[in-house]
């Protein structure tokens, strides 16, 4: 019976019903963390001795970039699980993850570009980190396009899962780009294996924002997956019942 949870995970209905009570908690907690961390980072964290106040962009740039990458893992792993175990739900998660990932990558590129102007004196530089992030953005766009390129749901899912897996090669390149190539981009600020190169007074709001972004990501991934579940299961009895009860309540 140890594997029961795994098989249940393949059931869209079970997933939909289980995640319903999580939504208000995730929403409250993530919004509270993001707002607090933004105020802390903008107004109460000390200015950087070298970059002055422009460094405050770090509080949204780094969390957005983290989630752009984490979102890719989630998308590719869901695709792999869907391909291997032939489950429906992982493909829905994969499809839901693509537009979110694309927008978060866009945010990290744009905020990075804006941060680059006062810090490096340029909006854009074709260096390794920035270029590999741009490729990540195109991979996400490719996922969205591929989902819509097939009329057959099944084919679209399989093809985009393969694309997501092939695109995984880009992920280590992004991580290592600041070490492998001589680049304008500063090396990682938060390190898990050694001491971080950032003062605690600046680090705490950043960590808070990262946690807030992760929870927010979980929330919007759930919301998008749930819509996708409803769309794909729209002919089933449970969705029909769900619609009737919401109709009566409204």
């Amino acid at each position: 019976m140890a594997w029961q949870w795994f098989h249940r995970l393949g059931s869209p209905r079970w997933f939909y019903e289980k995640t319903t009570p999580w939504l208000p908690w995730l929403a409250t907690l993530s919004i509270a963390l993001i707002v607090t961390a933004a105020v802390w980072g903008l107004a109460f964290a000390p200015a950087d001795f070298k970059q002055g106040n422009s460094y405050r962009i770090i509080y949204i740039h780094v969390p957005a970039a983290f989630l752009a990458l984490a979102g890719y893992y989630i998308m590719a792993i869901s695709g792999a699980v869907g391909l291997i175990w032939k489950m429906k739900l992982p493909f829905m998660v994969m499809k839901a993850a693509a537009p979110i990932g694309a927008l978060l990558t866009f945010v990290s590129l744009v905020t990075g570009s804006i941060w680059g102007k006062p810090t490096w004196g340029t909006w854009w530089e074709w260096d390794a980190r920035i270029t590999s992030m741009l490729i990540l953005f195109f991979l996400y766009l490719g996922m969205i396009a591929l989902q819509q390129a097939f009329t057959q749901r099944d084919t679209a899912d399989k093809a985009s899962a393969v694309l997501a897996l092939v695109g995984m090669v880009n992920i280590p390149i992004i991580y290592k780009s600041v070490d492998w190539w001589n680049t304008l981009h500063q090396p990682a600020t938060i390190k898990f294996t050694s001491k971080s190169s950032i003062d605690p007074s600046m680090l705490y709001p950043l960590l808070m924002m990262v946690i807030g972004f992760y929870l927010f990501y979980a929330l919007i991934l759930l919301l998008n997956t749930r819509v996708e579940i409803l769309r794909r299961e729209n002919r089933t009895q449970w969705v029909n019942d769900l619609i009737s009860t919401t109709n009566k309540r409204a």
Partner: peptide, 15 residues
Amino acid sequence: MNGHGPYVWASYAIT
């Protein structure tokens, strides 16, 4: 923000 205001606020607004 010591002249960095437009950059910082634009980033936060877009995000």
